[in-house]
């Protein structure tokens, strides 16, 4: 599980494309400098968005023949920052720049018992782990939750491979996942690995903490791309610098501030490290959609600071999805930076 995160860039050729669920495309890549991808690893790649190049991360679903073929799966998000739209234009024979596999979500072999939890497209980070745990004959349960069966990639394959070890929860079939029941049934010594929407992961973390299970046994990966609310356009102001910038639906506050010429400090850009922290001076009639995992729940509630790489402002103070619509006045957040 050596976590190696040197970005070794190489070219890769698209060799096969297929649709594996509504809006989810499976893309097989042949890298020019193959390296085996361990479970939990991902690649970064350069996506062409509006003529420019932007970096995006995708979990590796499968690594074949010591990494000579790497498989990713891309969900075309309804509110995309452009990456998934580009990925869905790829055709066999196309080439793109990718990194060798990077690892932030290593699977430990040798735990007494495992629960793997995937919400929606989060299955892409979990699938390879499940395959490995099956191969080493580990005691594991794979829990796969989705809104609707048609949008759940690889469901049939997973049923065939994992049989009774797979538990499926589908919202529109009335079998939604009960997080407290799931976490309530976990014994100490069990490791839980999860990837999915932030609502799901926050709920699991809260339940895990309430049960006083060991925090290091709760494993998750976040790319900071989901929130409690749908993203809206909002306005950010820095009075000390005389800056006012619009943060579009498909941009982050960090990107908007960089575009406005503010010299910003940052590192992970996915809500983990806390370096891009900004101080909230005022929030005019809205709420902060904290999408980071850096702050504790207490700190998020206090709403004194936010991780501007992922977190957003929304116009509704109650922040329900229905209240947040495009006709409302955009939220205005006034901040200061380091």
């Amino acid at each position: 599980m050596a976590a190696t995160n040197n970005e070794v860039w190489q070219s890769a050729t698209v060799v096969a494309i297929s649709d594996v669920a509504a809006g989810i495309r499976r893309i097989e890549l042949e890298p020019s400098a193959p390296k085996h991808a361990e479970p939990g690893s991902h690649i970064d790649l350069r996506a062409t968005i509006d003529g420019g190049q932007e970096k995006r991360s995708y979990s590796i679903v499968e690594s074949k023949d010591l990494g000579k073929t790497l498989v990713i799966s891309v969900f075309k998000a309804p509110v995309s920052r452009g990456g998934s739209v580009y990925m869905h234009t790829l055709k066999p024979g196309d080439t793109l720049r990718i990194t060798q596999p990077l690892q932030n979500f290593p699977l430990r072999v040798g735990a007494e018992r495992y629960v793997l939890l995937a919400g929606g497209i989060g299955i892409t980070a979990i699938m390879n782990m499940a395959a490995v745990l099956r191969n080493v004959k580990a005691d594991y349960t794979l829990v796969y939750a989705g809104r609707t069966r048609a949008a759940m990639a690889y469901l049939q394959d997973l049923q065939e491979i994992h049989g009774a070890r797979l538990q499926v929860h589908v919202d529109d079939e009335g079998s939604s996942l009960d997080v407290n029941a799931l976490v309530g049934g976990i014994d100490p010594g069990t490791e839980l690995y999860m990837c999915g929407p932030i609502r799901l992961m926050d709920a699991v973390r809260r339940s895990w903490t309430e049960r006083e299970l060991a925090l290091p046994d709760l494993r998750y990966e976040t790319f900071g791309n989901s929130g409690w609310y749908d993203p809206e356009e909002f306005v950010v102001r820095i009075p000390r610098l005389g800056i006012e910038a619009k943060v579009g639906q498909g941009r982050s506050m960090l990107e908007a501030l960089e575009d406005a010429g503010v010299d910003m400090m940052f590192d992970c850009r996915k809500g983990e490290c806390g370096l891009c922290e900004v101080r909230i001076l005022n929030l005019d009639g809205g709420a902060v959609d904290h999408r980071d995992v850096f702050y504790s729940e207490r700190q998020q509630h206090a709403a004194e600071k936010m991780c501007c790489c992922v977190s957003r402002a929304v116009s509704s103070p109650r922040g329900s999805r229905t209240d947040a619509n495009s006709s409302a006045t955009p939220a205005v957040v006034t901040i200061d930076v380091s």
Partner: peptide, 26 residues
């Protein structure tokens, strides 16, 4: 870190960065 190489405590913050691990070998 615990014996699995997972961060169990980060003195300067209230949470644990989920990426904070060191490789643990069998």
């Amino acid at each position: 870190y615990n014996s699995a190489g997972r961060c169990a405590s980060m003195p300067a913050q209230e949470t644990i960065n989920p990426s904070a691990t060191v490789p643990s070998f069998p």
